[in-house]
Design a protein around this nucleic acid. Structure first.
Lengths: 235, 235
DNA sequence: CCGGGTCCTTGTTTCAGATCAAGGCAACAG
DNA sequence: CTGTTGCCTTGATCTGAAACAAGGACCCGG
């Protein structure tokens, strides 16, 4: 049965598909294909023809821009329920790679564009999400250009914490939170436009100030969320 | 007659409105209002309720993001025919200010959103433009984070030249081009995430290398487009 | 012609973060 | 158990751009 892949979809309510009624879902399912990728695997290559789009079902992806001589910058992170891909573009401008093992629900680009024409609510939702992504990208431009290393790292930690455990705690409360970073120091550096060493030093500083606890390379405990927020806005 | 404002509109063919048929234009005209602003005037304030959107008819606008302590970054420039504003957002995230005298065709946000629902082609065009803006913003993230001062300035000059005299010359040809910068050194610095002094020094360097000629503060002649492109990609 | 803007250039100093270099630690294969 | 590999930390040094400072060019109003 073709709807199977949607019925038990963990992001059914949060992805673009949430805009579809039952018939719409059935039609959409016909276009979709599940795909699993392992950490490090690249899903779309900059310069390649833009043939597919996707909804991310699980895992985390990065979108990387690069200069001709190899300098890299992560220009977007994708979490479950996010839409990935470049509709209406002939070729991919950026490379998209899995940071963790991940599961995608892929659609051919052309049929997807055609589907949007006939499902105004999905098109509208995509528009709203794209506008939000644009706003975020602009905020990140401010961060890349004008924030200090300390502010950047603190800000990223806040973002990742919010993404990692949305349901675990109510926003605003200040109890310690523990979560796993979905990426290495190197990836953090690529997101923030810095080097690995500087990221590491900032984390050490935050630890020294009693704001964080680090255990292993990936596990972070925010001991003082208030201080972390202050750090993000001032250091 | 209500259609008057569109009939003689210089950007009629290039703005969002190009997606409308005659009836659509008439309906849209009913929602629009022309507004002139002088250089330096602010059109939308970050934090204010998002009440209007606009098509830019003439002039150049900047969109500025700022930190709490006053550091600023220009996160977008708007040229004639560009769409400005944040539909579906309750409040403006960024401040939009005129760099030159400018003319806007404004629409109330809510009625505009409603209008989009009923004019799928316009909604689709807005989606495509938003996707392109997002791609540009991501490219700029790479530039802000990873390029050197020289690369940034050369790149911006190339962009502005392309915007300034689109019809004057065919792309790729290498004859000298003269055009006026639509902004001060200070604005260039705000776009590129640098300081006025560094922008000035880079321009002086470019002049010294025989790549550019500068006359007055605003007029630039690209004497060697090839060299300028090389500078943008390597210096 | 003068005074006061605004904007730009140029010189000097300072500093945050990059770069270079050396280990540490955990996971894993043999 | 041992060598390898990947990732992280820490230290020392270097450097590009910021910050600070001073002065020049141009414009405008009186």
């Amino acid at each position: 049965m073709p709807t199977e892949i949607c019925v038990d979809c963990p992001v059914r309510e949060h992805a673009l598909c949430s805009s579809l009624n039952d018939e719409g879902v059935i039609a959409f399912t016909g276009l979709c294909q599940r795909r699993c990728v392992t950490a490090g695997e690249t899903v779309m290559w900059a310069g390649d023809e833009s043939r597919i789009c996707a909804n991310l079902v699980s895992g985390v992806l990065k979108m990387v821009a690069a200069t001709a001589d190899g300098r890299e910058q992560i220009v977007g992170l994708f979490y479950p329920a996010d839409f990935v891909g470049e509709p209406y573009a002939e070729e991919h401008a950026f490379t998209v790679t899995a940071l963790t093992n991940a599961e995608l629900c892929t659609v051919q680009r052309r049929p997807f564009e055609h589907f949007l024409e006939e499902h105004a609510r999905m098109e509208n939702l995509l528009l709203q999400r794209t506008l939000r992504a644009l706003k975020e990208a602009r905020g990140r431009m401010l961060s890349l250009a004008r924030l200090s290393a300390g502010e950047k790292v603190a800000g990223l930690l806040i973002d990742m914490a919010a993404r990692a455990e949305r349901c675990v705690r109510r926003p605003g409360s200040d109890h310690p939170v523990t979560f796993d970073l979905p990426m290495t120091r190197g990836h953090m550096a690529d997101v923030l436009g810095m080097t690995i060493e500087t990221v590491s030093r900032q984390l050490t500083k935050l630890k020294g100030a009693g704001v964080l606890a680090l255990s292993g390379n990936r596990t972070v405990t925010i001991k003082d969320a208030h201080a972390l927020r202050a750090w993000a806005a001032a250091r």
